[in-house]
Design a binder for these strands. Sequence first.
DNA 1: CAATCGTCCTGCGGGC
DNA 2: TGCCCGCAGGACGATT
Length: 281
Amino acid sequence: MPELPEVEIIRRQLLPLVGSEIIRASADDEDLFADGLTPENVVVRLQGKTINNFERYGKFLLLEAGENWLIFHPRMSGKIWYRTDPPPLPDRVKLELDLSGESEEKLFFTSLRRFSRFYWQERGNPGQHPKIAKMGPDPLHSEYTFDNFKNNLSGRRGAIKNLLLDQSFVAGIGNIYACEICFRSGIDPRRSADNISSTEARKIFDTIIEVLKEAIAAGGSSLNQESSATVYRGVGGEVGSYSDQHRVYGRENENCPRCDGEVKKIKLGGRSTFFCPDCQK
DNA sequence: CAATCGTCCTGCGGGC
DNA sequence: TGCCCGCAGGACGATT
């Protein structure tokens, strides 16, 4: 569910907690813990540690606890809540952190579909973690340059939209923003990456930053609004409004906002893909 | 190496 | 009304 913008919003909302000590931790559901983590030992590793920072790479949220890093990937349905009571069912708490300070609020990590993963990086910096090391540049970091982008593009032959979803190409884009980026770039999502012109590549490169930043400014994309338990929410339960600005995602059969065409929905690489066949070339 | 496909899991909404 | 099926914002591993 959360893509780069949603994880970035969560990170910014959590930043005021930097400096807090983890007084008590509890964890459940061993399937979600990787790198030798278990619900038992993660508690031992976290308790008594100070939260020194929250960072983000792609869709990974990075929590610096003492000298080490707890790395959380929300995948489809992961959420982080900052509140006094456990979040409402059917969400179930996988990790709870009680922090020092006056506040009664605690951090709750949930994962309705249980796809989320907790990873661990001992000392050093989280970029050394193998999952992060093999990722492409993060569009909001300085290593995201057009030269780099164009180099990574060469030799790729698959559909451009699938390439945008490939985390080793660019980090942080998911299905919603891949559709929106193709639309805003005027590029047919089915176009093979190897016949994207330099001008078009430049357009896509710029649009990636533009769309992601706009989404952050709008509080992220929350599909289905209040109705679904899987909807994206900020740490205080806030719903994002960027879905109101989606040009094509979730808008099958609606009028194209740019031409006389109609938004279509197809499958591409097994994923729902929304686009306007009339003005995306 | 790069691309495709099935799979993991739970809850919801549509159709019959 | 109730049940069954398909679908969902992600990524991994096996296979071609």
